[in-house]
């Protein structure tokens, strides 16, 4: 499920972009030291593969509806977390541009929802420990289904949160969650089986190929990942917070400028009629930002009661801070997860 630009507020979009850019910068920094010559073409071609595979639909058993491959988990299994994350990010970028899936501002959210969770969180925390180094089909199956399901649940829940924090939709939280999570549970189970099927098929048909991919795959250098991630998380939160603060104060300042530039005199006649009704309404429903009605009212109303402004500011930055807090928690989880996976011998990410 792709997040869309139209449902986003700039604060939430920017926060997620900051988080995604931080993870992306970190992943490419890691890759630069771990990389082997083969990795870049391999990443690109596998990205194209995911893209092509996503264009093929299959019938979901018992429903008659059709599903397609998500891909993040397969990439992580083949390439390891860092390279897989960057590849998934580029798949989503191409999708945003060529298929307009989501949008360019929502791309940050989409990379976060569909890239960070499977590649950086679920794969090292869940898939690796479960599937182990062995190629036992049973373990691959269990690990894939669980991982894909959990990654998709996290992704779907994030879509809900991002939509709600943006405040562009009226959908109540409970209903939205109840709608999104079960759908993605079903999708996740099917996709998990398909992922296991693909990996199992390749492991059976050409076992040497998985080994050579594993050899081409960048190796972890044992850098204190959690520490670096913490820095990036802080950075993301600061950027997000600063931006939402900016976003929340700016419209006020602008409004003031607009009033000055356009002048009150000519506009005052519009204040009768609709605008007056509106302002009355607005005062009753205090949670509505007054600038929200300006367009509907056709004219900027005279300065709203001053008391309304701090409320708005708090509201917008509340969204930014909440978003940032979530990013912080998630990035923290990634850091902890990767570190604990790294402690386990033979499962260094």
């Amino acid at each position: 499920m792709h997040m869309a630009d139209a449902l986003l507020s700039p604060a939430v979009g920017a926060t997620l972009w900051a988080g995604t850019a931080a993870v992306g910068g970190y992943a490419s920094k890691k890759l630069k030291v771990q990389i082997n010559d083969r990795t870049i073409p391999l990443m690109g071609v596998l990205g194209a593969f995911i893209f092509a595979a996503q264009m093929i639909n299959f019938t979901i058993p018992g429903t008659g509806s059709s599903g397609h491959l998500g891909g993040g988990m397969i990439l992580a299994i083949l390439l390891g977390p860092h390279a897989a994350f960057l590849t998934m990010a580029s798949v989503l970028t191409v999708q945003a541009l060529f298929f307009a899936d989501g949008g360019l501002l929502a791309l940050g959210c989409n990379i976060w929802n569909l890239g960070v969770y499977p590649c950086c969180l679920v794969y090292p925390l869940l898939y690796r420990p479960l599937a182990g180094e062995g190629r036992s089909p049973g373990r691959i199956l269990i690990a894939s289904v669980l991982s894909v399901v959990i990654a998709l649940q996290l992704g779907a829940f994030s879509v809900v949160l991002e939509t709600l924090l943006s405040g562009r939709s009226e959908l109540p939280f409970g209903a939205f969650v109840l709608l999104m999570q079960p759908i993605h549970l079903a999708i996740g189970i099917v996709e998990g089986f398909v992922t296991a099927g693909i990996i199992g098929y390749v492991a059976a048909a050409r076992p040497e190929i998985l080994e050579s991919v594993a050899a081409a795959r960048p190796v972890g250098a044992g850098v204190p990942l959690a520490k670096a991630l913490t820095v990036f998380a802080l950075l993301a939160v600061l950027t997000g917070g600063a931006f939402s603060w900016f976003a929340s104060t700016q419209p006020d300042g602008l409004e003031w400028a607009i009033e000055r530039v356009t002048g009150r005199g000519e506009l005052s006649e519009a204040e009768r009629g609709v605008a007056a009704v509106l302002r009355g309404l607005q005062e009753k429903t205090a949670f509505l930002p007054d600038y929200g009605f300006k367009a509907a009212a056709a004219e900027p109303a005279p300065a709203a009661p001053a008391a309304a402004w701090p409320g708005i500011e708090a509201g917008t930055s509340a969204a930014g801070v909440t978003g940032a807090a979530i990013v912080l928690v998630l990035v923290g989880l990634i850091g902890l997860g990767i570190r604990s996976a790294g402690r386990r011998p033979g499962s260094t990410p």
Binding site: S9, P10, R168, A247, G292, A296
Partner: peptide, 8 residues
């Protein structure tokens, strides 16, 4: 995207 919710 920065336009408020009710602005058309």
């Amino acid at each position: 995207v920065s336009f408020p919710k009710y602005d058309v």
